[in-house]
C-alpha cells in the first residue's frame, strides 16, 4: 500500500492547485456576496473559502484512491501485501511528488521564517522594552501607535504618544478593538490563511488576503460598538489615523492605509445583515462538488 503514497500526494497537490486556481477565479462573485454580510460572519466564510481548496482536494483524493486502498489491503487480490503491477504507475509519480512536496515544505518554511519568527523576536524585545500595564504593554515612544502582536499568546501594545494624545474614551475604544483581535485570534488565523495560499503565487491571492484582513478589522470595530456608540468608535478611528498621519516621517510616504474609509463606513452603517444562509449554502455546495467531481470525472473518463 505504501507504493501509492507518492501518487496520492501528487494527485492531492495537483487537485489542490487546480482548486486554488478555480476558487481564485470565482472570488469576485464570492466577494460580492460577502460584502453585505456582517464582517464577523463574512470573515469566517472567507477563511473557509481560502482553506477550502486544500481540504476538499484531500477529501477528493481520498475518494479517488479509496478503491485502490481497498483492493491493496485485500488478501485475495494481493496475497502477502504486494501488488507491483498496480503500483508501478503510481511509482512513476514519486519524483514529481517529491519535488512538489519539497516546494510546499519550503514555502511553508519561508512563511514561518518571514512571519512567525520576526513576530516572536519582536514580542520578546517589546516585552523587555515596554511596561506591562495589565490590559496592555506600554511602549516608551512619542509616535502614536496601537497594535496586537503575537501568534499564540498575543498582547496589546500602546505607545506613550497615543496614550497622551487620546482621551479615555478613545483608549477604551482602542482596547475594545484590540481585545476583539485577541478573542478572535486574528493574527493566527491570518497566518494560517497565508499558509493555505502557498500553492499559488502570492500576487494572485493578495486580494483575498487583503479582504480577509479588512473583514477582521471591521469585525473588531463592530465588536467595539457593543461597548461604545458607533460614532465614538468611528471618531476614534479617524482621530488615530490623523495622529499617525501627522507623525509620519518623509521616508514613510508612499505607504497608504486605504482601509480606514471602508472601516469607518462599516461602523457607521446602521444595520449589517446577519443572514449568512445563501453564502453558507453556496460554500457547502461548492465544497461538496469539489470533493465529488474529480472522482466522478475519473469514473467517467478512465473507467467508462
Amino acid at each position: 500500500m505504501i507504493e501509492f503514497i507518492p501518487g496520492f500526494l501528487f494527485t492531492w497537490f495537483a487537485i489542490w492547485m487546480l482548486f486554488a486556481f478555480l476558487t481564485n477565479l470565482a472570488y469576485p462573485v464570492v466577494r460580492r456576496l460577502l460584502r453585505d454580510l456582517h464582517p464577523g460572519t463574512a470573515s469566517g466564510l472567507l477563511f473557509a473559502w481560502i482553506t477550502l481548496p486544500a481540504f476538499t482536494a484531500l477529501l477528493s483524493c481520498t475518494l479517488l484512491f479509496a478503491p485502490l486502498f481497498v483492493l491493496m489491503s485485500s488478501e485475495a487480490h494481493c496475497p502477502g501485501g504486494h501488488c507491483e503491477i498496480t503500483a508501478s504507475g503510481a511509482n512513476m509519480l514519486g519524483i514529481p511528488a517529491l519535488v512538489i512536496g519539497v516546494w510546499l515544505l519550503g514555502s511553508g518554511f519561508i512563511v514561518f521564517k518571514r512571519y512567525w519568527l520576526p513576530a516572536h523576536r519582536l514580542a520578546q524585545q517589546l516585552k523587555f522594552a515596554g511596561r506591562d500595564e495589565g490590559r496592555f504593554v506600554r511602549l516608551p515612544s512619542s509616535s502614536p501607535a496601537a497594535f496586537t502582536l503575537g501568534w499564540l499568546k498575543p498582547r496589546i501594545y500602546l505607545t506613550d504618544g497615543l496614550l497622551e494624545q487620546c482621551s479615555e474614551e478613545d483608549i477604551a475604544c482602542i482596547l475594545n478593538h484590540e481585545e476583539a483581535h485577541l478573542r478572535r485570534r486574528d493574527n493566527l488565523s491570518q497566518l494560517t490563511a497565508r499558509l493555505f495560499t502557498i500553492v499559488l503565487p502570492t500576487k494572485l491571492l493578495e486580494r483575498q488576503l487583503d479582504d480577509y484582513n479588512l473583514l477582521c478589522e471591521q469585525a473588531c470595530d463592530l465588536d467595539a460598538t457593543r461597548f461604545q456608540p458607533a460614532d465614538e468608535v468611528a471618531g476614534t478611528l479617524l482621530k488615530v489615523a490623523r495622529l499617525q498621519s501627522a507623525s509620519l516621517p518623509v521616508s514613510a510616504l508612499g505607504f497608504i492605509g486605504d482601509h480606514i474609509e471602508q472601516r469607518i463606513l462599516s461602523v457607521l452603517k446602521l444595520q449589517h445583515s446577519d443572514t449568512s444562509r445563501l453564502p453558507t449554502i453556496l460554500l457547502f455546495t461548492i465544497a461538496f462538488a469539489m470533493v465529488l467531481v474529480p472522482a466522478a470525472l475519473f469514473q467517467w473518463l478512465v473507467l467508462g
Binding site: 518571514r114 496601537a146 496586537t148 486574528d186 478611528l237 488615530v240 499617525q244 498621519s245
Partner: peptide, 16 residues
C-alpha cells in the same frame, strides 16, 4: 514593513 506580523489599530496612512 511590520504589517504582516501584527494587527495595527489603524494603518499608518501617509496620503489621506
Amino acid at each position: 514593513s511590520l504589517e504582516p506580523v501584527l494587527s495595527s489599530f489603524v494603518d499608518f496612512a501617509a496620503e489621506m
